[in-house]
Amino acid sequence: MSTGLLSGDARVEAAPRFPRKRKGISGRSIAILVFLSICAAFFCVPLYVIVTTSFKTMEQIREGAIFSLPSPITFEAWVNAWDHACSGIRCEGLKVGFWNSVAILFPSLMLSLTLSSITGYALALWKVRWAGTFLFILFICAFVPFQIIMIPLIILSSGLKVYGTIWGIAIIHAVLSMPFLTLVFRNYYKGIPQEIMSAAMMDSGSFWRVFGEIIVPMSGNIFIVVLILQVTSIWNDFLLGLTFGGLGTQPMSVVLANVVITTTGEAAYNENMAAALLTAIPPLVIYFILGKFFVQGITAGAIKG
């Protein structure tokens, strides 16, 4: 059966990507899938617990069966969390935090995307003699712990009368994310062919026109990636909101922490869980719809090194 042997060899040569027989499922595959499923269950447990708890009544929670399904299902906790939950002495619910977060998000996104895309473009595609040094400094700044610059920034923003305002938090977000986002944009723009840039120099030579007409239209994907990265990181931020938010301008995560941590008397666990879910829903929705870009964003930073 020399022909059989030959054709067998040829098959392996021609299709090295699929050496596995596709018929049936091997024992090892089953073992792997079972293990992965158990891990997946571990990852889903907290989500399951929060969701079920948020629909339970406090009576049912006191029974202690954390895995039981809610019966009766009640939306009271959600309504309370949104409308009445107490953060400190104010009992206006998470809605205040939600709208604050939204109000912080938009100006901050505008600022940080504009600032870091232009900076990245200038560093990647224009001749700037000190670009290398500056990139190195930005690289270091991207990893500096916030605490080392926190106090002077508080003093500075108080001096500029933006401390404790929505705009103050938005600006601080844009400022602190600038080094990292600039590096992301710069790495992307470095991939634009040199000849396109040369052609643009011959045709126009204007920094802004080339950016607006040639480069921005070519950077759709990276804008989405950075946008998602920024939306989730601004929405999920706690420390900046805590240190720069004033009374009434705190973002949602800070309000959530206050609701959960500073409760007096018996905690309303169902309300806490509903509050946590309310905070988690916006980024989760983005994640499940635009997961591909989200993954690109979080790995872009790590791999750029």
Partner: peptide
């Protein structure tokens, strides 16, 4: 490489 602007 012709360097045509791909989005135009």
């Amino acid at each position: 490489s012709y360097a045509l602007y791909p989005t135009k």
